[in-house]
Structure formats: C-alpha cells, structure tokens
C-alpha cells in the first residue's frame, strides 16, 4: 500500500505544537520542583526520622514507585470527587506527577544526604576552613557529585513522562499533537514531528544541564 506522506500539513501547525512544548517544560518543572520540595522532607525523614516516620515514608515511596503514574492520576481524577473534591484535569495531573516524583526524588535525595554526612566527617578533619569554605569546597562537591547526574536525568525523564497529561486533555505537546491529528488526519506525520520535537527538547535539556553541571557544580555529568 502506498502512503503519501504530507508533512507540510503538520509544519503549518509548528507554532501551535511548540506552544505545547512550552507547557510540557512547565509541567516537568512543576513536577520536578514540587517533587523535590516534598522529596527533601521525605529524604530527611528517611535518614534522620524515627521508626514511624521512616516506615510511613518507606510505604509512600514503595507505593508510588510500584504503581503507574497514569492510574494514580485516574484515581485522583475520578475517585476524589467521591469524597467531594473535584479537580480540573491539569490540577489532577500536576498533583499526581508531583506526588509521584516526590517518591522517586526521596530515594535520589537520600543518597545526597548520606553523602553530606560523609562530607561532614571530612569537614571536621579539614582544619582551618571557614564555614563558607567548608560548604563550597567540601559539602557542595560531595552533593553535586552524587546528585547532579541522577537529578538531571530525572528531569529529562519527567519531560517525557509529562506526555500522560495529554490523556486528560491537557494541551501540552502530545495533547496538541492529538488535537492536530484528529483535525488534519495526518496522524503519522503529526506524531513523527512531535517525536522530533521531544528529541530536540531533551537534547537541549541534556546539553544545558551538563553545561550547568560543568560550570556551576564542577561535575562532569553525562546527562542521558
């Protein structure tokens, strides 16, 4: 069967798709920083907390990392109204992604806290340094070395993962691709272009993050 590829019909929609890409980045950002905020508490609790706190955080992490984000969001979106809480789709997606990424980030950040502990011991041995020097010469390198690459990779992973928002009619990149393909009926072309935008987006993010890593944190991190 001959298929007549018509990419021109998609290229006219490029600005619309790129607008969606912008929302994709925003969603990834919110999921990342929201998750990091919760994850810091989770990680501190996991390391320094009492038995109950550790158990509760552990259960949270195990539950969220062993079930799909999509079903978690379905649950929020469809089950919470039972309890009288009605969320709009974007809010449900954001809450779901934040809760989900908080679980993964708890695990990642825990490794950072453990490395800070090691750094503290080293700092204690490093006599004659002022606190600020200890922070920038001892602590920061330790944390950056253990955390920068996994955090960067996780951010890139969130950019790709945020595409599930499309299933709740959120108009991020994939959502807009679905919109276009239902109107122009050039499905393959639309999704190939969309895929290319994702590739470009993640390559830019990877390059940018490894640049930040090299210049600001002095780590040679290979980001995805």
């Amino acid at each position: 069967m001959e298929y007549d590829f018509q990419f021109a019909k998609v290229f006219t929609e490029l600005p619309y798709l790129l607008g969606g890409a912008w929302l994709t980045i925003q969603i990834a950002f919110i999921a990342f920083w929201g998750g990091a905020f919760l994850g810091i508490f989770g990680a501190i609790g996991k390391v320094y907390g009492g038995a109950i706190a550790r158990g509760a955080i552990g259960a949270y992490v195990v539950f969220f990392t062993n079930t799909p984000a999509l079903v978690q969001i379905f649950f929020l979106f469809y089950a919470l109204p039972e309890a009288g809480i009605v969320l709009n789709p974007l809010t449900a997606v954001l809450i779901g992604m934040v809760l989900n990424s908080a679980a993964y980030l708890t695990d990642i950040l825990r490794a950072g806290i453990i490395s800070v502990r090691k750094a503290e011991i080293e700092a204690a041995l490093t006599i004659g340094m002022r606190p600020l020097q200890v922070l920038s010469y001892v602590m920061l390198p330790h944390v950056a070395k253990t955390l920068f690459a996994p955090l960067s990779n996780f951010f890139v992973w969130l950019m790709l993962g945020s595409s599930i928002a499309a299933l709740f009619a959120v108009e991020e990149l994939t959502g807009r691709a679905i919109n276009i393909s239902t109107s122009n009926l050039r499905t393959i072309e639309t999704f190939v272009v969309t895929a290319s935008i994702y590739i470009l987006l993640t390559i830019i993010a990877s390059l940018f993050l490894s640049f930040i890593g090299r210049t600001v944190f002095r780590v040679k991190a290979k980001v995805m």
Partner: peptide, 15 residues
Amino acid sequence: RRIPFLVVLFIVLYF
C-alpha cells in the same frame, strides 16, 4: 530514549 512511550505507541499504531 528521547521519545515518550505514548508517542511511540501512537506512531506504531498508525504505522
């Protein structure tokens, strides 16, 4: 490694 699984699913389906 740089395309969301959802997008790959759509492409494969329509291909």
